[in-house]
Simulated assay, not measured.
Amino acid sequence: MTEHTFSEAEYDAVTDAAAHWCMRLHAIDCTAEERQAFEQWHDAHPLHAFEYEAMLEIWDVAGDLPRPESAAPPLHVPLPSKPSTSWRTFGLSAAVCALALPLAAYAGWNLGWLPNSYQHFESTDNVRQITLSDGSQVELNLSSELTFSNYKDERRVTLKKGEAFFSVSHDMKHPFIVKAAEGRIRVTGTKFNVWLYEDQVRVNLIEGSVLVTSNDTLNGDGLRLGPSMQARFRHGDFMPQISETYANDSSLAWRSGKLVLDDLPLSEALPLINRYLTKPVMIADKSTASIRLGGIYNIKEINNLVATLPRVLPVYLTRNENGNPVLNAIPRQTPKS
Score class of each variant (00 low, 15 high):
T188R: 15
G183P: 03
K179C: 07
I242P: 11
E182R: 13
L225N: 02
H170C: 01
N219E: 11
M239R: 12
L205G: 06
N219D: 11
L223Y: 00
D249A: 07
A253S: 15
G257M: 06
R224H: 05
D216V: 07
M172W: 03
R202N: 11
V194Q: 04
W254R: 02
G208F: 03
V187P: 01
D171E: 14
D262C: 05
W254Y: 03
T217M: 01
H235I: 00
W254E: 02
R234N: 04
R255L: 15
G220A: 05
A180G: 08
V203H: 12
L252R: 12
T245P: 00
G226A: 14
E182F: 05
V210W: 09
K191N: 06
V203Y: 14
K191C: 07
N193K: 10
F165T: 00
D237F: 01
E244R: 15
V203E: 10
N204M: 08
E198C: 13
M239A: 12
R184Q: 15
D262V: 00
L264M: 14
K191E: 12
I206P: 00
V203C: 12
T213D: 07
S250F: 08
M172L: 11
F176R: 10
G220M: 04
Y246N: 12
D216T: 04
V194C: 07
V168D: 04
F176S: 09
Q230R: 14
G222Y: 06
Y246C: 04
T190C: 01
T190G: 00
K179R: 07
D249C: 08
E198S: 15
G208P: 03
G226K: 14
L196S: 10
D237H: 04
Y197C: 06
R184G: 01
F192A: 06
I206Q: 11
L261W: 10
G220H: 03
V212F: 09
N219I: 00
N219M: 07
E244T: 15
G226C: 06
G183K: 08
L264P: 08
S169V: 15
I206L: 15
G189A: 10
G222A: 10
G208A: 06
S214A: 15
A231Y: 07
D199N: 13
Q241I: 03
G226F: 12
S214H: 05
L223Q: 10
V187R: 02
L259Y: 10
R234Y: 02
D237A: 04
D263I: 00
E163S: 00
K258Q: 11
M239F: 09
V168F: 09
F238R: 13
I242R: 13
L261G: 08
H174P: 02
L261R: 08
M172F: 03
E198P: 09
L205Q: 05
